[in-house]
Every structure is written in C-alpha cells, then in structure tokens.
C-alpha cells in the first residue's frame, strides 16, 4: 500500500521527536464589516472593523488534544478556520510540522498540507451535500488528492472508513437524509479520515447532538486518536465535554486567549477571573439544587471591545491598570494567564 497507510501512535511520535506538531503564533483576523461604500460616504460613517481574533498563540503536541473554549463572539471558530486555510490571517500564522502553513496554503504545496489537516464541522445536517451519495461524499478527498484509482479500490476504502466509525459499508449507497444526526457526524469523521490526516480541527462536533449520541461520537473520536496518533484541536463551549476529551485547555474571550493550561490544572486551579466564573456558571448535574453565582453582565459587542483588558467591565478584581493596559499572556508556574491581577499576585 502507498502512503495512505495510517500512522499509529508509536510511529508518529518516534518520527517527530519532541517538537510540537502545530504552532500558532500571534494569530489575528480582522473582518471589515463596514457599511457599503455609498452609505459610508453619504452618512459619514467610519469604517467598522471586527477583530475576531486578536493575537492568539498556542502549541499542540503530536497525539494530544487542545481544547478552545469560550462563549459566542470569542473567536474560537475563526481560529479553527484560520488553521485550515479557510481564512487568511491578518497577522501572525501557523507552523505545521515545521512548515509555514500560510505560505503553503497560498502556493501549490497547499495541496500536500490539506491532506494532513482536516476539519469536522458543527452542523451534521449542513456538512454533507444532500444530493450526493455517502460513497461519493467520503470518496471525494480520495479523488481530489489522487490517492486511489479504480472504482473497486475506492469502494473498499470507503467501506473500511465507514467501519472505522462504527457504520456499515452498506451505508455508502444511501443519502445523508436517511441518517440521524449522530450518524451523519460519523460520516463527516469518516470523510475527514479519508486522506489519513495527522491533525483534525473539530469545530463543536457534538454541540448539535443529543447527550447519548454525543457519548458515542466522543468515544469514537478518542478511540481513533489512540489508534492513529491523531492530534486534535477541539472547539467547544461545553466545559464538561472539554474536560472529557482534552489534554490542554485554552480559554478565549473576545478574540484573545486569557488562559491556557493543562486540563487538570485548569479545572482544579483556574487562575483567570473569567475562567473561574465560567467554571462556576456551569450547571452541575450531580450537585442538585445548588445555586450558582452567576456572571455579571454580558459579553460586550465585539465591534466595540472595552479598552485594556477586554474582561475588565465584568471583573470583580479590575483596577485602573486593567482598563488602560492590555495584559499579555504570561507564563506563571506552568500555566499561561493574561491577567494583571494574577501577575500582581492580587488573586
């Protein structure tokens, strides 16, 4: 067989050494959401820029999972799309296995890169073309990258992929609407695995699924990671799910990374005030009747972010410096936090 053989965990880490597979440095993306030119001229409105992502840096080691959590408007989905090349960053970039990803995406070596990085989307109903057979959907990356030729070889491979996500090879002759949400999400995973990628970006893959179906899909994802040495970037707003799947967790707020730590450390000892409030705000199933301390205020309008630290209007520990100066992501005892109060030892 050719290079389509899946690398397993040992081979992967032996080959790579200790360098992280994915290194994102100062990623930023600004969208121009100004009114049309004519309106701007007539109504004398200024250009409106949306800083969806504003300087995000992280590393992911091979075979591990980094989870990005945050609420709506924090930019985590934009980060996902920057990594897979759907958007071009305004600033900064990503290095994949030592290679500059952004340059690759712009050039012809992008094709090679796209074999190694794949994405799984949130909406199981919109992520599969309703007019295509499942066989064609899963075989498309094989066609596109010329991995296999011959209808029989393709069919066999599609059958293998379906089996690896817990579906039957007979399912390839059906249309997406004949499957439930959880099964469709599994088909998406099978499609993403077709090119034997090393890195999977998962944008809220289970948010639209029922709890028991979510459990099935999460279990499959973990099994696949173990068998094939996959690296995941897992985006979610559900901290309980994140706790189950991740090795490292990054918390985002209004386009910035406010805390990044190993999972156990983050959940046991959250440093940043926003992380603490987020953890406190989750409804706990086993703590029946416990009242939570709700977070004050709401996420501000991303078009008009607060000055200095974006969280300061809602933060109980904010001082004058917080409203003036934006905190940098500093390393403190194994954890990275962007908070003046933590830096100054106030909390």
């Amino acid at each position: 067989m050719n290079a389509a053989v899946m690398p397993n965990a040992e081979a992967a880490s032996a080959a790579a050494g200790d360098a992280p597979l994915v290194v994102a440095h100062d990623l930023a993306k600004t969208f121009d959401v100004s009114a049309p030119w004519l309106n701007r001229v007539l109504e004398r409105k200024p250009r409106t820029l949306l800083h969806a992502v504003d300087g995000v840096s992280f590393e992911i080691e091979r075979g591990k999972t980094l989870a990005l959590v945050g609420e709506s408007g924090c930019g985590k989905s934009t980060v996902a799309r920057l990594l897979v090349g759907l958007y071009e960053p305004t600033r900064g970039g990503m290095h994949f296995d030592g290679q500059d990803a952004q340059a690759a995406y712009r050039s012809s070596s992008g094709r090679q890169l796209r074999r190694r990085i794949q994405m799984i989307f949130q909406d199981p109903y919109a992520s599969l073309n309703p007019r295509w057979l499942v066989e064609d959907i899963i075989a498309e990356p094989l066609h596109e990258h010329g991995i296999l030729s011959g209808k029989d070889a393709m069919r066999e491979r599609v059958g293998e992929l379906l089996r690896s996500v817990g579906l039957s090879p007979l399912d390839m002759a059906k249309y997406p609407h004949q499957f439930s949400g959880g099964q469709r999400q599994r088909i998406s995973i099978a499609r993403a695995l077709a090119t034997a990628p090393e890195f999977l970006v998962c944008d809220e893959p289970t948010s639209a699924l029922d709890v028991s179906v979510q459990a099935q899909v999460l279990n499959i994802m973990k099994d696949l990671q173990r068998e094939r040495g996959l690296t995941y970037l897992f985006i979610s707003h559900n901290l309980a799910v994140v706790r189950h799947v991740s090795d490292q967790v990054g918390v985002m707020y209004l386009g910035r990374l406010v805390e990044r730590a190993d999972k156990a450390e983050l959940f046991a000892r959250p440093r940043h005030p926003y992380t603490r409030m987020l953890l406190d705000a989750i409804p706990q199933m086993h703590a029946v009747g416990r009242a939570r301390t709700p977070v004050q205020g709401e996420v501000p309008n991303p078009l008009n972010p607060p000055s200095g630290c974006a969280f300061h209007p809602r933060c109980p520990h904010a001082n004058a410096r917080c409203s003036a100066e934006r905190p940098a992501l500093l390393q403190l005892s194994g954890v990275r936090v962007a908070c003046h109060a933590v830096e100054e030892g106030r909390i």
Binding site: L86, R111, F121, S127, L128, N129, E144, R191
Partner: peptide
C-alpha cells in the same frame, strides 16, 4: 455558507 461547501474547500477542491 453551508458547511459542506467549506468542507470541500478545506479538502482543496
């Protein structure tokens, strides 16, 4: 704007 189109773009189609 649907995700199957984005999936195709990610694939490099």
């Amino acid at each position: 704007s649907k995700e199957y189109v984005q999936a195709a773009r990610v694939m490099g189609v």
